[in-house]
Design a protein around this nucleic acid. Structure first.
Lengths: 222, 222
DNA sequence: ATACTTCAGTTACAGCTTCTAACTAACACA
DNA sequence: TGTGTTAGTTAGAAGCTGTAACTGAAGTAT
């Protein structure tokens, strides 16, 4: 485990695990996580079904691994999308459009982490930490900008968040930033989740414009 | 079919169909639609598995029926929530809080229509019509109020919607109302979908306050 | 070098799923 | 009383997850 140079067995094991995950991803991308079949993966790899259980305790463990990978990939995507020196507004805009591109590229990957939870699956603590890492990127940016609560309910929320901020306990962002980061997240998710779930198809308008307006509504609040 | 008084066979058939759906609903409520098992329903009813195929062509047809029922139920809930004479603001507030209550009462029912689509399932045209019926209730209210686009992106969206309004073709609401209804929908969905999917658990804040702020942000825009 | 242990992969199987095919038995109606 | 419709049956194909028991190869220790 702590070895810098891994044994050949461990290397082989890791390689097969990666191959399994690669096949799992193509399956998720096409049919979604709920239809993921370990048997089908084994068949594609030319091995028997039960052989996969040497590498993953069960189906849920494989799915959990995919969820964590998805979080990490989104985190990397955001890190790659922002230019460190840029203004917070520019960084938020970059993260917003990167998120939608990431979601539309592989809708089922987005739904895997933000859609209907697959029955029986329990999010591991690591997933919560990765989600917090994403949130931290938003908080970093919002902490650098000002933004007034636009109505009484928003003010009430902001006051509430001043004392209910365990989810951002180790981040110095003020309540206003917490509120705007949360709002940013839910507004973007509201648009993109309905889009990837196909709820806009047939409505004949451009979801990209709605998405842009929603992102701007939080970042460039009047 | 067109008979006002149905034959005893048809009545029996309808009764069994309803019983199947009732069992399906309790199953959906506990484990979600993706884990719905026709076999398990048959066992609960004391009949053999294949007998159910007399009443539903296949699993997807049963799920489709549940989806349509859910839409109808949400529509009725909204109709019951609003008081006709009330101000549009009051009606929108009533629909918003009714929606969240409806979603939290049976999370999987909300996810059935607004969550990850179950693989293989294709939304029937009737579902689109029912969704349009829900949207019409929002449009009715927003058409009675004023609301300015708060930034350039929102203005661009509003202009776009002036010429891309097939989804509200038979509704006289102006572009501003279309924009606000759409925004209302996605903002409420953004909060409630993350809430029912469990993404707020462990964050230790009250989603109800965020939900209220989001609803107000569209209805009581400054 | 030989013996021992670890482990990847195998087949067989239990138990679950959807769904089809063929058959029986009850009912409606003329 | 006869005929056609239909609700239900069992049998079974083909798929799934997951367990048990076994084989054979690779790594490790003596």
């Amino acid at each position: 485990m702590g070895d810098a140079v891994k044994s050949p067995r461990a290397r082989y094991r890791e390689q097969v695990r990666d191959e399994i995950k690669a096949h799992a991803w193509t399956q998720v991308a096409t049919t979604g996580a709920s239809a993921l079949s370990l048997n089908a993966i084994a068949k594609q790899m030319g091995i028997s079904g039960p052989a996969l259980y040497r590498y993953f305790r069960n189906r849920d463990e494989l799915i959990t691994e995919l969820v964590l990978d998805a979080y990490r990939d989104l985190y990397d995507t955001w890190r790659a999308a922002v230019t460190p020196g840029d203004s917070p507004e520019a960084r938020l805009a970059a993260m917003a459009s990167a998120l939608r591109r990431w979601a539309l590229a592989t809708p089922h990957r987005y739904l895997l982490i933000y859609g209907t939870p697959v029955p029986g699956y329990a999010a591991p603590p690591e997933a919560t930490e990765l989600a917090a890492g994403l949130m931290a990127l938003l908080l970093d940016a919002f902490a650098e900008t000002e933004g007034k609560a636009e109505n009484e309910a928003a003010t009430a929320l902001e006051h509430h968040l001043a004392t209910h901020r365990q989810w951002a306990a180790d981040h110095p962002a003020p309540p206003s930033a917490l509120r705007r980061a949360l709002t940013f997240w839910t507004r973007l998710h509201g648009v993109v989740s309905l889009e990837v779930a196909g709820h806009f198809t047939g409505m004949n308008f451009d979801p990209g414009l709605l998405y842009a307006a929603e992102g701007d509504s939080v970042v460039n609040a009047p």
